[in-house]
């Protein structure tokens, strides 16, 4: 199939940036979306143009590196699918596809379609862990964990930290990302001692990074490749409020 692409090109952070159109021909429906971009880049390289910069690594939907806004949808039209798992068979011959980077003030554009998502790491630094220095752990079966708690923890831990939730959110909030981590650690017995302080600290950092608040619209869950449910944001709200109202919370 032949496809027209309109892609956001921006040389570097300080550049203004603009949409530029390109045509790619003979695209096989079995190609992944990123392989289609590889074709474009090969073409650009041979004509001496600067290839389009985009983030990707594992190309199997787990590392969270890929991050494209495709026709206004974070990770494109398929539910529960990261950009790298999207295939061209979901598009038709002659389609015009708009490709843009994630947009959020907390995610400055570095180049073309690549943005800086280190804000998400800083949120984790603020408390997204259980303090368990190496060597200090008791035998793994000392504490049993109810299966439903382990499952709930896993559901939260499945977040791939791609930032699609932020890109899709009309408020530019990272609450789904944050809620996922709070739920992961807060659902396990090992995570209880730091549960309140974790929620408080991570939330403080989330806001300091300039992410917006959550108005429960749920657009994030519609684009999340990992299927993180909206109730994890409510879990976050719950834990923050209880963290702030605990005596000695400070």
């Amino acid at each position: 199939m032949n496809i027209t692409l309109r892609i956001w090109r921006q040389q570097n952070h300080d550049d203004q940036g603009r949409m530029v159109s390109y045509g790619v021909d003979d695209i096989s429906p079995d190609m992944s979306f990123l392989e289609m971009l590889d074709v474009l880049n090969e073409q650009l390289t041979l004509t001496g143009d600067d290839p389009v910069a985009f983030d990707h690594d594992c190309r199997e939907g787990i590392c969270g590196m890929c991050s494209l806004m495709i026709n206004g949808l974070a990770h494109g039209p398929e539910a529960l699918t990261a950009t790298c798992q999207l295939h061209m068979r979901h598009f038709a011959d002659g389609d015009v596809i708009d490709i843009e980077p994630w947009r959020s003030n907390a995610f400055p554009v570095i180049k073309d379609l690549i943005v800086d998502r280190s804000a998400l790491d800083r949120i984790v630094q603020a408390g997204g862990y259980i303090s368990a220095p190496t060597g200090s752990a008791p035998d793994a079966n000392t504490t049993s964990v109810a299966r439903k708690d382990a499952d709930r923890a896993f559901d939260g831990a499945a977040c791939i930290s791609c930032g699609a939730c932020v890109a899709a959110c009309p408020n530019g909030s990272a609450s789904l990302f944050l809620g996922a981590k709070i739920t992961h650690l807060g659902s396990l017995p090992q995570g209880q001692p730091e549960r309140d302080s974790r929620a408080v600290s991570m939330t403080a950092q989330h806001d300091a990074e300039g992410f917006g608040g959550c108005t429960q619209i749920g657009e994030c869950t519609a684009v999340c490749p990992a299927g993180i449910p909206l109730d994890m944001i409510s879990q976050l709200n719950h834990d923050v409020l209880s963290g702030l109202t605990q005596p000695g919370g400070q």
Partner: peptide, 9 residues
């Protein structure tokens, strides 16, 4: 042991 203590589900 270490992984479980860190919260690996």
């Amino acid at each position: 042991d270490q992984a479980v203590a860190q919260g690996v589900p």
